[in-house]
């Protein structure tokens, strides 16, 4: 039972909590000779692989480091332009590390607010009245399960596609939210949840689910 992440979206569609639980690191490092046999391009402030897929390096992967020096945007940490480096023959052999880009907090906020209208759209598209909106969304690599409370808060978990009993986990997270977030007098409604007790109890819950499933929740 693998849980990749937990998200809580407020009534107004804002991301008030997100937690990456267990996202596998997809990374590949390889030494290249001149000329470089994969095509790189600069997009969305990242250097990504545009063409040429092999040895665990896939299209869409982001350049993480050059000769062990981390890459930031299109420059390495010591200030040199990545494209200058890879176009200069003298720099080879060159060791490049690629990996799957991690979503930044901003991107997560955008994704959460994109899910909000999708959810509303689903309930409007419904051929039968009284539709609950999206409860689960399955892809080949993950399953997203969503639970909306009567008050409009959405609890979302992203798990392995084989995940069973996601509803129970979501219900438990709702209980944790009502205990540790809402009963904390210093937490204001609709604001991002920054409560240490909530974090730790959520952590315990996810670990329990991962170890022994949802049967004894």
């Amino acid at each position: 039972m693998v849980i990749y992440g937990v998200y809580i979206v407020s009534k107004s569609g804002g991301l008030i909590f997100n937690y990456d639980h267990n996202i596998p690191r997809v990374e590949a490092e390889k030494t290249f000779g001149f000329p470089l046999d994969i095509k790189l391009q600069y997009e969305n402030k990242k250097v990504i692989v545009a063409f040429g897929q092999r040895d665990g390096i896939n299209v869409g992967h982001v350049l993480l480091s050059v000769n062990g020096t981390p890459v930031n945007g299109r420059t390495t940490e010591d200030g040199r332009d990545v494209f200058d480096i890879i176009e200069t023959k003298e720099n080879y052999p060159l060791s490049l590390k690629f990996g799957r880009a991690r979503a930044t907090t901003n991107e997560k906020i955008v994704l959460a607010s994109m899910f909000y209208p999708l959810f509303a759209l689903a309930s409007q598209l419904s051929p039968v009245p009284k539709c609950s909106g999206i409860e689960s969304l399955t892809a080949d690599t993950f399953k997203l399960s969503c639970f909306q409370t009567l008050t409009g808060v959405k609890f979302i978990i992203v798990t392995d596609p084989s995940m069973q009993g996601a509803e129970v986990v979501l219900k438990r997270i709702y209980e944790l939210y009502s205990d540790y977030a809402l009963k904390n007098p210093f937490y204001s409604l609709e604001m991002p949840i920054r409560c240490e007790l909530f974090d730790t109890s959520l952590h315990t819950l996810l670990e329990l689910v991962e170890k022994s499933g949802t049967a004894n929740l």
Binding site: T151, Y177, L182, K183
Partner: peptide, 11 residues
């Protein structure tokens, strides 16, 4: 009340 309702709905 606005906080307790969640607790009530949860359990």
């Amino acid at each position: 009340g606005v906080r307790l309702i969640e607790d009530f709905l949860a359990r």
